[in-house]
Amino acid sequence: MQARHYKTLQELWKKTTPNQQDVGHLLDLEFESRRAFIDSCSLKEEDRTEKVIEAYPCFREHKHVTGQAIALMKALPSMFPSPTAPPKKLGSASEALIHVLEPSEDPNTFLQKRPITSPVILVDSTNLLLAVGKISLMTLPKEMIHEAPLILMGCFYTFHLTYPKCVTTLLSVIQTEVLKDSIHERDLTHSYKKAIAEWGEFTKK
């Protein structure tokens, strides 16, 4: 499946005017194999960019570089892990924050079946949909994906919602380190303290 996505991506890019939305969608679907390719690359780091551009010339377009914000959003919960696992029906913890819709997937049906009611960003081939619980709040241009964490935090603040347990460490770190908001003493959990300590060590490097 991943190989087919890559092949289709290369065929699209050979066109004189490739459909950038289709390219972006395929990049999202093909992310895992691309990351494996990059990680397995034996070249020195300073030579890696050239190798990746040879395989993915679409990264010469700024929108496809910033489009990897979706992958970053998916990775954030594992970078600041919470001790509580996500509900089985949810799948990964990142699904508490963002979900990439399949072409045949209806957003309203997805929201009705979602096992938690926290704010979420739904991504389709052209737009972002911001929803809280089963309510679709607004449609946003896909270029705003890099703002998604702050948009979600805005929803938690506006509607005074509780963080999902599976991403509470991540959202608490964003609250204190990005938004510079205080945190209640009861929320100073071991996982939060560990994440803050590791973040502090990282920022010193």
Rank of each mutant, 00 (worst) to 15 (best):
S78V: 11
D39A: 11
R114K: 15
K44Y: 06
N127K: 15
S40H: 09
Q112M: 11
E143W: 02
N108H: 13
S82Y: 12
K204S: 14
T162I: 04
S94A: 15
K134Q: 14
H184Q: 15
I116F: 01
D28A: 06
E95R: 15
L29Q: 13
P81N: 14
F59I: 11
E61W: 09
P81W: 12
H190S: 15
K142L: 11
K204F: 11
V132D: 01
E50Y: 05
E50R: 12
Q2N: 10
C41R: 04
F156S: 03
T109Y: 06
A75W: 14
G24W: 00
T126I: 04
K204C: 11
L140K: 12
L170H: 03
R48N: 04
I151K: 06
T176V: 09
L12V: 00
K63C: 13
L12N: 06
I98K: 07
A197I: 10
E54W: 07
L76Q: 10
T162M: 03
S104F: 07
G91T: 08
F156P: 01
T189F: 06
I53L: 15
Q175H: 08
L29E: 12
H146S: 09
M73T: 05
K205H: 14
E95A: 15
S33T: 05
L9M: 06
I121W: 07
L129T: 15
D124V: 05
E95P: 02
G133D: 03
A85I: 10
T169K: 01
D106T: 05
E102C: 07
A195R: 03
P164L: 05
Q112D: 12
H64V: 07
F59T: 06
V23R: 01
L130E: 11
T109A: 13
Y56G: 02
K14M: 03
E45L: 12
D47C: 06
E198H: 10
I174V: 12
R48F: 02
P164W: 03
T8H: 05
F59M: 13
E177Y: 02
D181P: 00
Q20A: 04
E61M: 11
E201S: 13
D28H: 06
L150W: 03
C166Q: 05
L72P: 09
